[in-house]
Write a protein that binds this DNA or RNA. Structure first.
Length: 723
RNA sequence: GCGCGGUUAGCUCAGUUGGUAGAGCGUCCCCUUGACGUGGGGAAGGCCACAGGUUCGAAUCCUGUAUCGCGCACCA
């Protein structure tokens, strides 16, 4: 080569090959220990008094392998982490996985049933849990190796699992604390019951499906004065009232009256009540109130002190009536009752309507609202230790006061809207996989504690906790709480919570709740919400659709660097994106481009050029760009920062500066010497700036540069060190 | 029903505090130039959904309309 002054690394003579590079580089990083902030201090790359920067990884569900959505969040969080680490922060990105109680158990149950034809009851609690644990362990290690493939620079030494022993201590401690404060109570209340999964589910675990249904209009009996409409006549055997709007002139005269009816062989007692929840214009303007099997009716019953007989059981079968309906499925009973109405001449109208049917997200079962004895968290009870504020207020205030900033900010409104509609949180689940409720019973006695009570004949509550209970403790349970550890003091409150907007409520809001309640501080000051990664057609990628693109396949084919860039460039926070293999290919080409830029510069420079940085128009131009990019990084505009460095490197540095350098270098002389130093100076800073986005190829190139006293690029200071 | 968001080049999308529009991919033409053909040079292509308003000036702010998407609530 022209000067022959430096020996080019043999690797550079071939096109860049990510597959032979990335694994090796990751090993290098991991073996250096520098993902851990402690080691960074030990090795002198971070000052002991540096400010901490902390991200808790949203733990992926232990149900499967990583998909593109995970690849997106891993990329964004790794970008933030690497950037802050290079800025000198005591940087902690703590990884973990979520046991995802219902999702995991139902997956394993399904698999076992398919393979062995056995139900969980055939296996028993112990055996099922053993199987689930095996399944989870194997998934966890798969996911961990996948995160390594993506280049995640997280601190594996602190890795956590929402169902490990330490997290179990945190869960039990929190439960007891809330129980003692009267925030957790056991109550017989209406819940969403999934007859298929045989468990309660949260409001957020319901998926509405639009279906066709028939709306029947009828009277309970011939002498009943008001007709009502329903799509579920079978529930009417559980009616205790008819509600009308207080201002409805048609029904005013009936308010307060009571009637005894014989409805399909069941004696019912109906009181006419006035309630503003009733819409005058819907149906007949009169609502048959079934307190035990409808959420809104339950609330009406609260307001009017109505009895709430349960007429449908946990298997969605009728509990009352004669042999014509007793024990029958609700759908069968419906037909019987409709026939009865017809034969009695009570049916006035039958019309086709479409309605939203509540189904369980995980099992697809039709949700049957039922009264059940369950554990709840009271979100409206004033808490003495928190100045009489309620949990709702504790969730609302930090966002209201901008102590917590949501990016993009239009999610603030969604957040407040959700809080306003929030009801008490049902936290008990009738499944086996999860944190067991730390409550024991003996006759009438009840005991709540982190350990079983002493004495004979105590029986622990068989239920487990909603998986979100344990994940809501994530920002501090990962740091050792309830123990006051050094980590907890150093890294909590954390800095950024990066996650998908779809779990703003399930998870993010509840972390705010728990942190404010237990520690009296915010769990993080910034919430960065990313969108959903969709396929080329704009459909949500899912296993059931079979349209998922495996990020590992992408990493193998194009390199993790290319995949990361494709996911990040131009993807504004909060907006959905489509994955496009062509785009990824483009960034693979970019990897090769910077590979060859390096070859050109190394070909034309000497060791001294790399250790004698210079300052001139070109270097100053890059400083400006670098400052601009730094400002983007500080303001979470990674989609712009990544694009800018890409633009600069390819279309300014390579296309123009390198091109014009060919002439200048040929001419030689002092100008040529200065140009060599310029190229080296700018290129060093380009690699640093690009490193958070494309860590592998930049680290690999860095290792080949004749820069003196260099450390790994991942801990080399960022070009701009002031904000 | 309530709320939120999108509507910008053929496609996918950026556009930070208002200063008459950008990228990637695609298309067309040219270039076997010593870093790279996974490349280089050039070109075409947009009344920034529509209608008003504020402003010296609007893709950007305000009002309304259309349309697509999402969230919540829910019809008993």
């Amino acid at each position: 080569m022209n000067n022959g002054e430096s020996d080019i690394d043999a690797r550079l003579l071939k096109p860049y090959d990510p597959s032979s590079t990335e694994n090796r580089i990751y090993k290098l990083w991991e073996e250096s220990g520098l993902f851990s902030p402690d080691i960074c201090i030990e090795k002198g790359v971070t000052r002991p008094d540096a400010k901490p920067f902390t991200i808790m990884m949203p733990p992926p569900n232990a149900t499967g392998v990583l998909h593109m959505g995970h690849a997106l969040f891993l990329s964004i969080e790794d970008i933030m982490t690497r950037y802050k680490r290079m800025r000198g922060y005591k940087t902690l990105w703590l990884p973990g996985t979520d046991h995802a109680a219902i999702a995991t158990q139902s997956k394993v149950e399904k698999d076992i049933y398919k393979k062995e034809g056995k139900s969980r009851h055939d296996l028993g609690r112990e055996e099922l849990l053993k199987r689930i644990n095996e399944f989870v362990e194997s998934n966890r290690s798969t996911m961990q190796s996948q995160m390594r493939i993506m280049g995640a620079s997280c601190d594996w030494s602190r890795e956590a699992f929402t169902l490990d022993e330490k997290r179990n201590v945190a869960v039990k401690t929190m439960f007891k604390k809330m129980y003692d404060d009267g925030l957790i109570y056991r109550g017989n209340r209406i819940v969403n019951w999934d007859p298929k999964g045989q468990t309660t589910i949260a409001d957020d675990e319901i998926v509405y499906e639009e279906r066709k249904a028939k709306l029947y209009t009828f009277k309970y009996s011939k002498d009943f004065p008001i007709s009502i409409s329903t799509t579920r006549p079978e529930t009417k055997v559980g009616d205790t009232a008819v509600a009308v709007h207080p201002d409805d002139p048609r029904y005013k005269k009936f308010i307060g009256k009571e009637y005894d009816c014989e409805f399909c062989g069941v004696a019912i007692h109906i009181k006419i009540v006035a309630d503003v929840a009733v819409e005058k214009d819907f149906g007949t303007g009169a609502l048959g109130v079934t307190p035990a099997h409808s959420m809104t009716d339950w609330e009406i019953a609260d307001r009017h002190d109505l009895p709430r007989p349960q007429v449908i059981n946990e298997f969605a079968k009728m509990m009352v009536g004669d042999e014509s309906i007793l024990g029958k499925k609700t759908t069968e009973a419906r037909e019987v009752i409709v026939e009865w109405l017809k034969s009695e001449g009570l049916l006035l109208k039958e019309e086709d309507v479409s309605q939203n049917v509540s189904t369980a997200e995980r099992t697809g079962g039709i949700v049957e609202p039922l009264p059940k004895l369950q554990w709840f968290i009271d979100v409206n009870k004033p808490i003495k230790a928190r100045g009489g504020k309620t949990l709702k207020e504790l969730m609302r205030e930090p966002v209201e006061k901008s102590e917590i900033k949501i990016i993009p900010d239009y999610f603030n409104k969604t957040y407040f809207h959700w809080i306003d509609n929030l009801r008490d949180w049902c936290i008990s689940r009738q499944i086996w996989y999860g944190h067991r409720i730390p409550v024991w019973y003996r006759g009438e006695e009840i005991y709540c504690g982190t350990e079983a009570p002493s004495g004979e004949n105590w029986e622990q509550d068989p239920d487990t906790l909603d998986t979100w209970f344990s994940s809501s403790l994530w920002t501090f349970s990962t740091l050792g709480w309830p123990e006051v550890t050094k980590d907890l003091e150093m890294y909590h409150s954390t800095d950024v919570l990066e996650t998908g907007y779809e779990i703003l409520f399930f998870w993010v809001a509840r972390m705010i709740l728990m942190s404010e309640y237990a520690l009296g501080e915010i769990p993080f000051h910034t919430i960065y919400l990313h969108g959903t990664v969709r396929d080329g057609k704009g459909e949500k990628m899912s296993k059931s659709l079979g349209n998922g693109i495996d990020p590992i396949y992408i990493a193998e084919k194009y390199g993790a660097d290319a995949g990361r860039m494709a996911l990040v460039v131009g993807t504004a926070p909060g907006t959905d994106s489509k994955i496009d293999e062509n785009k990824i290919k483009g960034y693979k080409n970019f990897s090769n481009k910077i590979w060859n830029i390096t070859r050109f510069i190394l070909d034309n420079t000497n060791e001294k050029d790399w250790n004698n940085s210079t300052k001139n128009e070109l270097t100053e131009e890059f400083v400006k760009i670098s400052e601009d990019i730094t400002s983007d990084m500080e303001n979470y505009r990674f989609h712009l920062a990544s694009e800018k460095i890409y633009q600069y490197i390819w279309h300014r540095f390579a296309d123009e500066i390198v091109e014009e350098s060919k002439e200048i270098l040929k001419a030689g002389g002092e100008k040529g010497e200065e140009r060599k130093r310029t190229l080296a100076t700018i290129w060093v800073d380009c690699l640093k700036t690009l490193h958070p986005f494309m860590p592998f190829v930049t680290e690999e190139i860095w290792s080949m540069l004749p820069v003196e006293d260099k450390n790994l690029l991942m801990v080399t200071p960022w070009p701009i060190q002031n904000d």
